[in-house]
Design a protein around this nucleic acid. Structure first.
Lengths: 209, 209
DNA sequence: GGCAATACTGTGGATAACCGCAGCCCCTGA
DNA sequence: TCAGGGGCTGCGGTTATCCACAGTATTGCC
């Protein structure tokens, strides 16, 4: 099992110790591991891109609103799903934040079962995100292993151009293109141009050189 | 200009004639064409998949709630973006409906500029959706023009298999595969297997035969 | 029965892809 | 200075692809 195959942790962020206790107790009773922070700043200073799981964030905190924390984390590139907890029904804020990519927005007092279900959904979402990311990361690693000339040839290959044409456009011999081409296939772990094109297209990668 | 290149219409659905008037006046002042319905049922009976634009639906109506209308339309396959208007802040409903794919959820009284902006966003979203759909539709039309044997060969081509292998697996002569292959290219409007693979992958089409 | 569509096959030749072997040039770092 | 990596190239041979020409067979429809 690689590290990214774990189900992740629920990161609880609230400046109300009673809420943190109640939440962590609830989650533990469902077998969901969690960790607590009593302020947004505290979490931010501990934040690491290695973290896996989801965030459960109170909207109303002393040092920073949950929205601000959300913005800061997104700026840092944190992709984890965020569930907001709110005590007072601000519809426009809820709508805004959901449209910005929050995972959920739950009013207090919340139903225990419902909250636990949402957390499980968020953890599952994050897990599948990591799986997708791992695939995509592996491809980018392979792309980075290509020399610049190889990338250039690659970009022509996936346009479906023949070796002769590529050679003309790059002003090199066909034999050279053949060599680069076979290196590209080897480094990218594919056996044909079709596989290569599919691999890149499925991962939304377009090589514009 | 094809029909689908128009910007679409705002379909207003509210059983309060005063609101309909105000909305249609507002939108007309911004150059946004709109049409009115005074009940959900009335709109449903007029609904046609040909409609282009977005819906602006009051949550609270006599015959049916906006949510019900939303569900009914989605069941009918209506893909248009829906903006809900609500007079009373139900956060949980807003969250639920947004997660189900509503475009926006706006509280009354609303800011005129904001609403007009949202409508324009929704219309733009629908326009780009139609563009994507048209591309995808064209591809499916071409796929449908293939005979079943050709589709079978296609599925092997996009796996990157050589004609010889395909011939073996289908128990036919290589020459026959070559013929099917060239028919597939011609009907799909591509000149190479790479183009074909990219075309299908970019549109999320996987041929499993 | 004739006609069209579909599927299938063979022959032979042109073109393209693939590959090992061999070698050249340039740059960089030990 | 020498080794290694990257880029470039030619030769010769095998395998694949693409295609024109030429058929056979089956099915379904008017």
């Amino acid at each position: 099992m690689t590290p990214t195959s774990s189900s992740g942790i629920a990161f609880l962020i609230d400046d109300d110790a009673a809420v943190l206790d109640a939440l962590s107790w609830l989650l533990r009773s469902r077998g969901i591991p969690s960790k607590n922070w009593n302020s947004a700043e505290a979490f931010l200073s501990d934040y690491s891109p290695q973290m896996q799981g989801c965030l459960i964030v109170d909207i109303r905190m002393q040092d920073m609103t949950g929205f601000e924390l959300f913005d800061r984390l997104r700026t840092l590139g944190c992709p984890m799903p965020v569930i907001f907890l709110t005590g007072h029904g601000e519809v426009s804020k809820a709508v805004q934040v959901l449209k910005q990519g929050a995972f959920d927005f739950i009013e207090k007092p919340f139903n225990d079962n419902e909250l636990a279900d949402r957390v499980l959904e968020a953890l599952a979402w994050d897990k599948s995100r990591r799986a997708r990311g791992q695939q995509s990361h592996a491809i980018h690693d392979r792309l980075r292993s290509l020399t610049s000339r190889e990338k250039e040839v690659l970009s022509h290959i996936i346009k479906g151009q023949m070796n002769k044409i590529i050679a003309d456009e790059l002003n090199i011999a066909m034999r050279t293109v053949e060599v680069h081409r076979s290196h590209v296939f080897e480094k990218m772990g594919v056996k044909s141009a079709v596989e290569l094109a599919t691999l890149l297209a499925e991962n939304g990668i377009s090589m514009s050189y």
